[in-house]
Design a binder for these strands. Structure first.
Lengths: 135, 135
DNA sequence: TCTCAAATGAAAAGGGATTTCACTTTCGTA
DNA sequence: TACGAAAGTGAAATCCCTTTTCATTTGAGA
C-alpha cells in the first residue's frame, strides 16, 4: 500500500484506519487520526478514503445513519467480507460462495457486480445477541 | 397492497411506481406521479416510499449518484432481485442461491442480513454491452 | 537553494433526506 | 347529515454528509 509522498497526514490516516479493525466512516477515521495530527482536516480524510477506494485498498460497505462506511482490506485479490451492520465488525469469507448467485443472475440475463458485493451485510454474534430482545 | 385511506395522491404514487417497471429514486417517482396529480409534493413521495418500505412492498437497492433507489416488488415472501446498477432494470431470481453464502457467513460467526440482500447489484445485458468499450 | 506539483485545510457550496407546521381531507360516530 | 378526531398534505426550513473552491504550505528533484 502506498502513501504517495510519505506525508504525516497520510500516515496518520492509514495508521488510524488499520487500528480501527472494523468498518468505519470518514468522520470516525478523521477523529481517530486527529489523535496523531490534531490539525488534520476533514477534507483530507475524505480525499484519503477516496484515493484508497480508487486504489482498491478500501471498499464501501453501505451506509450507517447516512454516513458511508468503509472497510480496509489487507488482500487485494477477489474476496468477500461480511460486515456487521450494527458495529462494523468484519470477517473474511473463505472461498467464493457467490458462484451460485452469479449463475442464477446469468440465467436472468444479468452479470453480478462482484465489486459491489465485496462486503456483505450481516450481524455479528454479539450484536445479534444484544438485539434479540428489541427487534 | 394497501393504500390506507384511498387517497388520490397515494394511488397516483402507487400507479407511477408500478408503471416504472424498474428501480427508481423518490424524485423519479415524484415526477412520474405528478403527471396525474401536478400539485403532489415531494415530501409526500418520500413518505409513501418510507411507508412502503416499512410494509415490505419496496426494497432499497443501493444508491445512484447519491440518491437512494427502490424496487417495487409484487411478491412478499423470501426472494431476491438482481438490479442493474446502470439503468435500474430488475429481474427476479429463481430459488435462493444465497444459502452457500449464509453458510460461509455462519462459519465466520455472522448472520447474513437477507433483508439487505433482497436486491443484488448487477449489469443487465444491454448496459453491459454499451459499457464494454468505456470501462 | 530553487522551483513546481501535490497536498492541505478552512470555508462555502451542493444536494438528498427529514422535520416542522399550519391547513385539508377522510372516516367513524352520533 | 353534522361533527370531531386522526391521518394526510405541501411548502419551506433544516439537517448533515459530501464535494468544491482557493489561497497557502510542504516535499521531491534539479
Amino acid at each position: 500500500m502506498e502513501v504517495g509522498r510519505n506525508r504525516r497526514n497520510q500516515l496518520a490516516l492509514l495508521e488510524a484506519g488499520r487500528a480501527m479493525g472494523r468498518a468505519f466512516s470518514v468522520r470516525e477515521l478523521h477523529t481517530a487520526a486527529q489523535a496523531a495530527v490534531p490539525k488534520l482536516g476533514l477534507t483530507t480524510a475524505y480525499r484519503a478514503v477516496e484515493r484508497w477506494r480508487e486504489e482498491g485498498w478500501v471498499e464501501e460497505a453501505g451506509t450507517r445513519s447516512g454516513e458511508g462506511v468503509y472497510v480496509l482490506c489487507a488482500e487485494q485479490g477477489h474476496h468477500h467480507h461480511v460486515v456487521c451492520v450494527d458495529c462494523g465488525a468484519t470477517a473474511l469469507l473463505q472461498g467464493c460462495a457467490l458462484e451460485p448467485v452469479r449463475a442464477a443472475s446469468r440465467s436472468a440475463g444479468f452479470e453480478l457486480q462482484d465489486a459491489a458485493l465485496g462486503t456483505l451485510p450481516a450481524l455479528c454474534a454479539e450484536c445479534a445477541g444484544s438485539n434479540a430482545g428489541n427487534r
